[in-house]
């Protein structure tokens, strides 16, 4: 692999990894609070379509991204109301949210099919952003840097901040957190809303950057990869960063090796790698049984305050 190819490869990997990283980071926080939201794909699509619509009207991608975050949060809050307030089954509701998101985004997007927008450019000046080598670091748009910064922020939040400790307490033992006076439902609402916002931004990355257009089911199942990624990372933010880039490398490597005519590894195997890796990690986790590497204890369980 020559330098140009290597750098191009890395640029493509970063593009492929960023949206799943964002969506998965949101879901990580949601799951840490003890809620399983399988509606990531649906929220991503809602974000993708609204972000695109607003950008094509206003011409401002940043406004589009913010609107994407807001609308996907609204979708997430429907889920929160059903599962947290009405204690509906989280798995079923999450799946329903995905189906709802697919349908709603198709409906909203009907008038925007065939539109084109200008793609968001890199943050840094052209001298750095288009440098043949330095573009690996400086050649990205604001969302890429935002995604990395958010990993740091979430890692700090969960580990060091008081609010983060409360969130984890709610996810590990909802009744204990409740008994010492924390609002379990309130914390979970906030976590689900954050998950929605991140999924919305991740979804809008497809319609605004990677494939600047709207078409039905534009995200084509990436929300499910994000869900797998959360498990793969064992609910740890920095490992999530590694995992997202690992998934990105695997997905991109499949295409680059095929384009080069290399058939050392079956491309089907590469395509299946994210899922195989996730299953392998799940198996390892269940073997190890060490605290911290496991799923939040209350994951997916509805909480009804006793009083």
């Amino acid at each position: 692999m020559n330098d140009y190819l290597l750098i191009s490869f890395i640029m493509t990997v970063i593009g492929a990894s960023t949206p799943i990283l964002l969506a998965a980071l949101g879901e990580l926080v949601v799951e840490k609070s003890g809620v399983l939201n399988l509606g990531v794909e649906g929220m991503m699509l809602v974000g993708a379509v609204t972000g695109f619509a607003v950008t094509s009207i206003t011409g401002m991608p940043l406004v589009g991204i913010i609107v994407a975050a807001i609308t996907a949060t609204l979708a997430a809050l429907i889920f929160a109301y059903l599962t947290l307030t009405l204690t509906a089954n989280q798995v079923a509701t999450g799946l329903a949210l995905t189906i709802f998101g697919i349908g709603l985004s198709s409906l909203l997007g009907e008038g925007f099919v065939g539109f084109t927008i200008d793609v968001m450019g890199p943050v840094f000046p052209a001298g750095l952003a288009e440098h043949p080598v330095l573009r690996v670091v400086f050649g990205h748009n604001v969302v890429v840097y935002f995604s990395i910064a958010m990993i740091g922020a979430v890692a700090w939040f969960l580990k060091k901040s008081r609010a983060g400790l409360i969130l984890r307490a709610v996810g590990e033992s909802d009744s204990s957190a409740h008994s010492i006076g924390y609002s379990v439902i309130g914390v979970r609402y906030a976590a689900v809303a954050f998950g929605g916002a991140m999924a919305g931004i991740g979804g809008s990355y497809y319609s605004l950057v990677l494939t600047p257009m709207w078409a039905e089911q534009l995200t084509a199942g990436r929300g499910w990869i994000a869900l797998a990624l959360v498990v793969f990372s064992a609910w740890r933010p920095w490992r999530l960063l590694l995992g997202a880039y690992f998934f990105g490398v695997v997905m991109t490597l499949e295409l680059y090796t095929k384009a080069a005519g290399i058939t050392l590894i079956a491309p089907e195997l590469l395509a299946a790698m994210p899922y195989i890796a996730t299953i392998a990690v799940l198996a390892l986790i269940s073997l190890r049984k060490s605290a911290g590497a496991q799923a939040p204890a209350c994951l997916g369980q509805p909480f009804k305050p006793s009083t």
Binding site: Y4, L5, S8, F9, T12, G15, A16, Y206, L210, T211, M213, A215, Q217, L218, T219, A220, G221, R222, M251, T252, L255, Y256, K258, A259, A260, P267, E268, A271
Partner: peptide
């Protein structure tokens, strides 16, 4: 030829194009 095993996956089609261009 780059098989993407899908009739419709915009992000994958775009990445496939990049992979082909890069090579």
């Amino acid at each position: 030829v780059l098989w993407v095993s899908s009739w419709y996956d915009p992000a994958k089609e775009a990445d496939a194009a990049k992979a082909l261009f890069d090579q």
